[in-house]
Each structure stands twice: as structure tokens, then as C-alpha cells.
């Protein structure tokens, strides 16, 4: 289990994380979401032991991560733009990671074939997606107990995304690996993540189980006999839009209660539409004043 307790981090005058409290259960695939600059990458760098926290604690199985060689051997951090020296090849990176992790060559070979990675070619000649595929293969081959992925799906084509998600799920099932993924591809996160945390203003604004969060909100499309207006709907909405007589809204609460409140408006039809994670995220950030 990973516990973040009142975690704080500032860069000079700028406070990036101001007391993050979060618990990530073992074996979960956890999505870290937030707008740009919310502190997702900083949180991952803290979890990886790259940065030292200004305050609070990061506990992995009850032990501090920073400068803890034993615990860090179980953690693999794949940043947004992973480093490679000029002239480095996949083979040299295998040498590097083999020196620090129990590198599984068979797993790497499997992904090498799937992603068609060229071992001896200089990485600088790879496309952005190919580089990402290579580092994903390396990350999966290190068989970590905790995988930290920053902008995990960035640059991957749909097929590579699928392979990556399959690999992640396999690692999760085989090793009980906990994966913490920051991404703006919320549809991808919805596919594989069980839990999520929304970072905002240096704190966790919302966290929990993705399906649970989605079940708490409802999206309705309602057609009224007259022009639909916001005032017609006597409850708080996360989002509301009306075009003529048709209104679409997302609201948090009990489904039956909403239907009861809509009934007096004599709707011509009421339809419930499934809400996806991206819509929920947009509603949340809108509610926080980021989108007009």
C-alpha cells in the first residue's frame, strides 16, 4: 500500500503540493488526473524518490521511499520524456536497467517483437511513439511492484495502446503490481484504472473508485413541451446545456430523485445517457472555475 500523508512540495516560492493525503491500495491501477500544472508529475517524481518532500510522508508498505534502495528496487518510474544519452541503443538501456532491477529478458523479447523494437539502433533516430514503446517494454520487463507512469499513453498509436494496456493488466495480475498513471487520455484511464485522484490546487480534490464516481453522476437528455431553461430544473447541475426544447445536463445525486423532480415539467421524453470519465473530469474542472 502506498500512503501519502500531508505531502508538501514547493519549487521556490511556488507551492505545487500543499498537503496531499492519499491511499493507493496494493495491486490497483490508479489514475492521476488534473489540469496542466496541477502537480501530477511532481507527485510522481516524489513517489519515485527523485524529489525530496518539503513536508509530510510517502510510505510504501510503511517505509519511507526517499533514498530507500530496497523499496526503490520495487518501483519503476517512467517519466514523460525519459532520458537517454546521445548514441544510446535499446541494448545499452537493457544493460542499465539490468544493473538495478531483476530484468526479465523474456518479457522484453516479447514486447520487442510486438513493438518491433530495434535493439542496436540509436534511440535518437526513433519516432516519439517508438521511444515510448521501447521504454514501456523496459518498464514491463523490470517487473516492478509499483509502476509510475507519467503521460503514459502519449505518442502511442491505438494498437500500441492496446498492447500496453494488456501488458499492464498482465503485470498487475501476475505480480500484483500497483500502477500509478498520470494521463490526459481519460478514456484510456477509464478502461484500465480502478481508482483515481483528481489533483487541484496542490491537493486531492476528489479521489476514489472510478466506477463509483461515475455511478454517482447522471446525465439526462430531456425534451420539454416548451423552450428549456436552466431555471426549470430545480437542482444543482455539474453541467447544463439547452438547445431549443432539448436540455442535456449532468448532476450528482440519486437518479430517482432527479426523475421525480423532472416529472412536473411534463417532459416529452427523458433519456439517461452514460457518463464517461472525461465528461466527469470536465464537469469537475468546470465546477472549479477552470472552464467557462
Amino acid at each position: 500500500m502506498i500512503e501519502l500523508i500531508r505531502l508538501q512540495k514547493s519549487f521556490g516560492e511556488k507551492k505545487v503540493l500543499s498537503g496531499v493525503n492519499l491511499t493507493i491500495p496494493d495491486g490497483s491501477i490508479f489514475g492521476l488526473v488534473g489540469i496542466n500544472g496541477a502537480g501530477k508529475s511532481t507527485l510522481l517524481r516524489l513517489l519515485a524518490g527523485v524529489l525530496r518532500a518539503d513536508g509530510g510522508q510517502i510510505l510504501f508498505d510503511g517505509e519511507e521511499i526517499f533514498e530507500n534502495e530496497k523499496k526503490k528496487r520495487e518501483i519503476f518510474f517512467l517519466p514523460d520524456g525519459p532520458y537517454y544519452a546521445t548514441g544510446t541503443t535499446a541494448e545499452k538501456l537493457i544493460d542499465l536497467y539490468s544493473a538495478f532491477y531483476d530484468f526479465d529478458s523474456a518479457v522484453f523479447a516479447e514486447y520487442e517483437q510486438k513493438f518491433q523494437i530495434r535493439r542496436r539502433a540509436p534511440i535518437r533516430n526513433f519516432s516519439k511513439g517508438m521511444k515510448r514503446q521501447l521504454f514501456i517494454a523496459l518498464a514491463l520487463a523490470c517487473r516492478p511492484r509499483c509502476l509510475l507512469l507519467d503521460e503514459a499513453f502519449d505518442g502511442l498509436d491505438p494498437l500500441a495502446r492496446l498492447e500496453f494496456k494488456r501488458g499492464l493488466i498482465a503485470l498487475n495480475e501476475d505480480n500484483g503490481c500497483t500502477a500509478i498513471i498520470s494521463s490526459h487520455s481519460l478514456r484510456e484511464l477509464e478502461d484500465i484504472c480502478s481508482g483515481f485522484a483528481l489533483l487541484d490546487g496542490g491537493e486531492v480534490a476528489d479521489a476514489g473508485d472510478i466506477q463509483g464516481a461515475l455511478e454517482k453522476v447522471h446525465k439526462f437528455q430531456v425534451a420539454l413541451p416548451r423552450e428549456a431553461k436552466r431555471e426549470d430544473f430545480p437542482f444543482d447541475c455539474l453541467s447544463f446545456e439547452a438547445t431549443g426544447r432539448v436540455a442535456k445536463f449532468i448532476a450528482r445525486g440519486d437518479r430517482e430523485e432527479f426523475l421525480q423532480k423532472i416529472a412536473p415539467l411534463s417532459p416529452l421524453f427523458v433519456e439517461e445517457i452514460p457518463v464517461d470519465f472525461e465528461e466527469l473530469f470536465l464537469c469537475e474542472v468546470k465546477a472549479r472555475g477552470y472552464l467557462q
Binding site: R45, A48, G49, V50, E67, E69, K70, K72, R73, I75, F77, P79, G81, P82, Y83, A85, F100, Y101
Partner: peptide, 18 residues
């Protein structure tokens, strides 16, 4: 002296003194 390289080397399971 470069963020990406520092991220790599400081995330590896080895103490900074070592």
C-alpha cells in the same frame, strides 16, 4: 544538470552517496 537525466539517475534504486 539536466532534468530528464536527473529524473533517471535519481529514480534508480541506489543511494546518492553510493
Amino acid at each position: 544538470m539536466e532534468t530528464r537525466s536527473a529524473d533517471l539517475w535519481f529514480s534508480l534504486p541506489v543511494k546518492r552517496e553510493r
